[in-house]
Write a protein that binds this DNA or RNA. Structure first.
Lengths: 91, 91
DNA sequence: TAGATATTTAGAATACTATCTAATTATCAT
DNA sequence: ATGATAATTAGATAGTATTCTAAATATCTA
């Protein structure tokens, strides 16, 4: 997935809000879109960035697209942070 | 200092490399600059971004400027990450 | 099949970021 | 004071990101 993509994905406030919303469980693109003052097209762009970074997954459910948090990236993200501050030797 | 500034600061690979270099202790602007294939002016820009985010501090030492890691932000950064993945209720 | 709803894709505009060169400020040493 | 060294600031440019509108695709229902 790439560290750079991960950090870049987390650098946008809209995308972080999306992640927070998904903490509560899967949501359709439309449900997520209602919470943001921008078009669905713009949101789709953010979903794609989050997917490329491995932070979310998506799955079609009829005419809806269901997005969910990929919690397994959490450990990776935590390790990256620790690396930056010297708490372990990993990369 | 602002979460947005923190995430933005971490989103650039040069700035993350600077942080890694500072894990080993304080370094002057010139010492840091030698490790990067860009001008000192460009590095100064990155130092300023890191300072605004509270990730580093600087201090004049004669004609040198000494940069050092501000490890106290580590906890804050870790909390922000946890928030995004639902491990605690903060923020 | 036709229409309605949900979402994505394509292309363009605007704003932001990283980087450069040139000029400036600050400190040291003679 | 003068010149040398260290670092920053200012202004410009190129690349990237965010957002929009309009068009396209996919699925459901009648």
């Amino acid at each position: 997935m790439g560290n750079q993509e991960l950090f870049k994905a987390l650098a946008d406030p809209t995308r972080r809000d999306v992640l927070r919303m998904l903490r509560g469980g899967s949501r359709t693109a439309g449900e997520l879109a209602e919470a943001f003052p921008m078009t669905r097209a713009s949101l789709t762009h953010h979903f794609n960035v989050l997917k490329s970074a491995g932070l979310v997954r998506s799955e079609r459910r009829g005419q809806h697209q269901l997005y969910s948090l990929n919690t397994s990236v959490f450990e990776e993200a935590a390790n990256l942070l620790m690396d930056l501050f010297g708490r372990n030797g990993k990369d």
